[in-house]
Design a protein around this nucleic acid. Sequence first.
DNA 1: AAGTACACTTGCCATATGACAAGAAATGCT
DNA 2: AGCATTTCTTGTCATATGGCAAGTGTACTT
Lengths: 192, 192
Amino acid sequence: MDLDFFELIYNHPLLKKEDYQEIRKAHTKIEFQQGSMLLEIGKIAREFYIIEKGLFRSFLYDYNCNETTTEFYCSNEILIESLSLFQRTSSKENFQAITDAVVWKIEYETFQQLLQTVEGFREWGRTWATSQIFSLKQRSINVLTINATDRYLDLIKERPQIIKQSPLKYIASYLGITDTSLSRIRKEIATS
Amino acid sequence: MDLDFFELIYNHPLLKKEDYQEIRKAHTKIEFQQGSMLLEIGKIAREFYIIEKGLFRSFLYDYNCNETTTEFYCSNEILIESLSLFQRTSSKENFQAITDAVVWKIEYETFQQLLQTVEGFREWGRTWATSQIFSLKQRSINVLTINATDRYLDLIKERPQIIKQSPLKYIASYLGITDTSLSRIRKEIATS
DNA sequence: AAGTACACTTGCCATATGACAAGAAATGCT
DNA sequence: AGCATTTCTTGTCATATGGCAAGTGTACTT
């Protein structure tokens, strides 16, 4: 059932059946082909996306002009450039479909309206924003204090979809290492 | 002048002289001794702090029980554990005065009230939250893509106060390296 | 002034990761 | 099936950083 998908994403005890009807109506389905861009650096994000199927990544170019994958977005997750969307500034990152994908989008204005009119949605939004900030903090700490092998093992455990669906080079740049090193780490893990 | 300090911190074009009067009245001055704790892991943050003088750091223990300095807070900056303050959850980090310090605090409830009643303050808050998220993202990217020497050089350039006021070991753990390595990096820089 | 604690530096060697290049495997296209 | 492209692996060597221990410097206490 489609409704189950929305209940899963916007999960909050204050949200009722009729709220989900309203939320659902606010969304439009779009499909993306593997490799296509959902948002590019310099453009302004106007929509909030939830992923039904497929895998996306965000990436940018570091000071050495190397592509760095900053995040992965799996099915049943939310994909946005929060700074661009909420601050109406140009995006600092590219967002790309790694596989063919099905997503549901909601316009920024509609999203804001839901936040204002649906209490449970507002509360959901607050919780979600908090978890976003928590993840961002956690990521820096992990990178600083955990070695690449353990970060990779964590990724396997926590987000196996990524391992299955993403080319090794994107995973490597997400972990902050080269694809050569990641290949060796995999070998090491396999033989131990 | 004290007012100048508040105008500097809560800088926003929508805020007027009388707004700053109100903002100022909402704050109370406190002093901290070098080494004393402003907030500890497990406690709930009830206040928002702005630093007039001195240096603070936040830190936690990683999965190896090593102390990791997650952030520094210099004079004219804001110091809070946003997750704890806004979500009423227990703090995930310790906050400690590295030097003797003078800060101004504002109670959470008073802060919320200002957000609701003063439009310029609300707009300032939105901008500030955005810049926080931006910094968090930037930090992960820097750690992933820039080597320790360049991160240290950046720190010297961007936040010289920290270099002057913090012991080397905190700077090292902030950079994600040992104090031994940082000592060598300094030597390397000095002789080149 | 001696003692103590803390901050910083240095030496030695180990380990993790990178750079580059070649080869192998998988995938897509016609 | 055959070719081209991309993805992944492996070898060799270089560099960055860590772990440990000893040594030096500095500041505070008494």
